[in-house]
Design a protein around this nucleic acid. Sequence first.
DNA 1: TATTTGAGTTGATCGAAATCAAACAGAAGA
DNA 2: TCTTCTGTTTGATTTCGATCAACTCAAATA
Lengths: 227, 227
Amino acid sequence: MIKVLKLNVREKEILLRSYFLSELPSATAAKLVDHVTVASHEARDPIFKQGEKADYFYTVLTGFVRVFRLSKDGREADIGIYGPGETFAEGVMFNGGTHRFCAQTAEAVTLARYEVDRLKQFASQDPAIGIALMASLSRNLDQALECVADDRLHTAPQRVANFILQNCPDNVSSARFRLPFQKSLLAGKLGLAPEALSRAFSALKSAGVSVHGRVIEIGDVNALKNF
Amino acid sequence: MIKVLKLNVREKEILLRSYFLSELPSATAAKLVDHVTVASHEARDPIFKQGEKADYFYTVLTGFVRVFRLSKDGREADIGIYGPGETFAEGVMFNGGTHRFCAQTAEAVTLARYEVDRLKQFASQDPAIGIALMASLSRNLDQALECVADDRLHTAPQRVANFILQNCPDNVSSARFRLPFQKSLLAGKLGLAPEALSRAFSALKSAGVSVHGRVIEIGDVNALKNF
DNA sequence: TATTTGAGTTGATCGAAATCAAACAGAAGA
DNA sequence: TCTTCTGTTTGATTTCGATCAACTCAAATA
């Protein structure tokens, strides 16, 4: 079930701090916020399906969204997980107005929706909007390329190590953090079966990583970097 | 050895038909062409290296360029092959001005170079330029996501079949085309070792594909689609 | 014509991760 | 408290593709 609502104050703040809008002068950002609608989704809700007409692109306000390709034989391959402040599917502004992938909520999620046609119009009037959109596209492009390279160069334990390191503050020797979503979701994001993720965590024990539920403890950050 | 030159007439035409400039009104495109420099590279020349400061992004005029990540232990993973009319490394406009990947020519190549700083300035004045850049970014983003999904869902022979089908005209039952670059380059693009590509071609014989040097003949396009 | 060189293929082996199956643990519900 | 359900782990097996090595073939060179 989707409910469409107006933005509340808290949501407005999250949105203004998102990667996309934070690039803009505050007056411009405020104008865009006025045209945003909010969609509230339950867990496991489909947001859109590949092949559908694309009327919106999205910024996540709360929760996590899984974007994936569905193959002919029904298997799914994740191409990205997006969390609060992140924008996804901006590509539909320029690819013929059709979604090329499926998107589904991982849990209860609220989304800010930008209308494609309206944004195109705004972008054609104000260069700053185009530039902010480019920054967002560019960020997502870099992540996708990084993902291809990571998949092709590194083993499962190495990819998990990379992910852990991205979630560690820089210049510390040990750290601890909590996974913001299920392990099975992380497995998908890294292109692994859940079993492979589990085994990868075991393999990282020797590098000082211990896992308790969703809490991950890194004993020696440098050891992990050289894994 | 790099030689920097002015555009000749032929190069100017290729550039105006490139994915990036063809999106623009001809007056705008002409203005950008005036600020482009041409770099002429020999085969196997490095164009830039990951970590380097990024002063330009590029559109290929002739030849093919390989963009790849170099890992700590010296292995390389291709993230894209770019040919005539395609633009690469536009991401550097927004990622802090540093190249995140390496680029190398596969053969003798001529490139049109756009100065990042100048393009940013132009984009901040004319919304159409930003929109054209977005279209280019968006195209490259889609390709990268497609690549992730393809890697994760399909076996080597299936990926090769997909590549072949992308190079077939639509709605024909049989076709024939010539690879525009070396097989080893194609192997890299598909994330395969050259041996694996060779074996994949053999596997596709049963689906009516025959290979003579760089010429690929597809006996039954539909059989290939269902491979 | 003989020779060298590089691209591509073929064969044998190995390793990483998918798959299938079963056990296990923690949270939610009766 | 006991049961149920879902997410995660562990074990056994299989499959795919990397790797290493040898070989073929064609083009380039002498």
